[in-house]
Design a protein around this nucleic acid. Structure first.
Lengths: 238, 238
DNA sequence: ACCTGAACACCGTTCAAGT
DNA sequence: ACCTGAACACCGTTCAAGT
């Protein structure tokens, strides 16, 4: 019987350890335990292997995390379809980005924390955004400004929305936030006080659950339209 | 001679350890070494004290980091001045937020990473934003949507801009990014290729320095105006 | 009340040894 | 080439002891 070249594994064995399996297992660990609790010993246990075996396939922990983020956002950028309106393209991109994050909310803090690993020089992503903005008529420094605004907006909202609550004293913290909200002084903070029921758990800083439990769907839809309106403004500038 | 109540310290002593001194020293450590490298032993050394002494004043490391972030953004929210246009208020807020982050760029990953600690239920901040949007004519769900958009935009851009490059292989990574940019295929990524000089090191994902070394001033100014235009759009909706 | 000092559990990583 | 196994340095935190 011919064996696959690089596999010593028999049918009964687990598949050989590969970089891809390491990253997949790391993502599973993070999904289950959160990014803070992620460590190499648990990862190795999941893979049925000694902790140090991982180092044959990957240089260090940071590299694993970078790969995990890259995996989650692989193929977020839709193909540019000929004749598609740039607004529709951006709407699609924003929805897909959020959908990806939603599937793996525990990855959010990793995205927020570092410059790299965010969208690791994914030229297809970059070209997708630039192509849309270019079709919108932006050139030169306005193209750059539009691009930076789109990336900041794309990442900023969703990272905030899905970043996890502090796992330790979750219970305690939830009621602490609620307590504070009920104690708002209408004299000092009138608009807040007047809109409390609308804002409670539906607005940044004023919520006690993250996007997995209390998604900000309506706000996000509005946000995307605001971003587009902002770009329209940019392109109508003299 | 009457001594201050809680101080056993004589003139020659260091001032007694307090929660405030712990937090101030922690911020100094983070400014110098970065958030990743921050640890309690270095912190204690800076304070001239045993590592475990810190635990008398603060429950754990996470609490210290939360206080550090709160300190950096203390008083970001300007006072609402009577008769001030809501647009000017928001412009001021955005500028002040970025200025605060710029003074302590190493704090950026801490802000990005967690839901809490961001703006720890600072009602003055919340009321400032809500007041401005309310003056812009937003009410109900549109007020909520506008508020969430402002917070996401405010934090999103600046965290991205100032989040640090991976400290380990900085040198190597810089030239790796530059290499990749020079190898852009104009066939596959035409808009990127055509605008490379404008984008290189001046746009997210396409830069090799962070905001401390290569600030995105022009893009940020444009971004703020785009956010305001987005809010105008929101308020003119039916 | 506040700090010292020892100690513990945990974790990322290195390296020699096996097959 | 790929994994085992021992080992090390580092770090957050607990707790008993001092003053």
């Amino acid at each position: 019987m011919a064996k696959p070249r690089s596999a010593r594994s028999t049918a009964a064995d687990k598949p050989a350890l590969t970089r891809e399996r390491v990253v997949a297992a790391a993502l599973a660990e993070i999904d289950e335990r959160g990014a803070d609790a992620f460590n190499l010993r648990n990862l190795a246990e999941r893979l049925g292997v000694y902790p140090t075996a991982v180092y044959w396939h990957v240089p260090n922990k940071t590299a694993i995390l970078a790969e995990v983020v890259a995996t989650v956002f692989r193929d977020v950028a839709p193909r540019r379809r000929g004749g598609e309106d740039w607004r529709d393209y951006l709407r699609k991109l924003f929805q897909r980005y959020r959908a990806s994050m939603r599937r793996h909310p525990n990855v959010a803090p990793l995205v927020g924390a570092h410059l790299v690993g965010n969208l690791r020089i994914d030229f297809d992503f970059v070209e997708g955004v630039l192509g849309a903005l270019s079709e919108a008529g932006l050139t030169g420094t306005r193209l750059v400004a539009g691009y930076n605004a789109v990336v900041a907006a794309l990442i900023g909202f969703v990272v905030q929305e899905f970043s996890p609550i502090p796992a330790s004293d979750a219970q305690e913290w939830q009621s602490a936030v609620q307590q504070r909200l009920l104690a708002v002084d209408p004299q000092a903070h009138p608009v807040l006080a007047a809109n409390l029921p609308l804002l409670a758990n539906r607005a940044f800083v004023l919520r006690w659950q993250n996007g997995s439990e209390a998604p900000l769907d309506a706000s996000y839809r509005s946000f995307v339209e605001q971003v587009i309106a902002g770009l329209e403004h940019l392109r109508e500038q003299t």
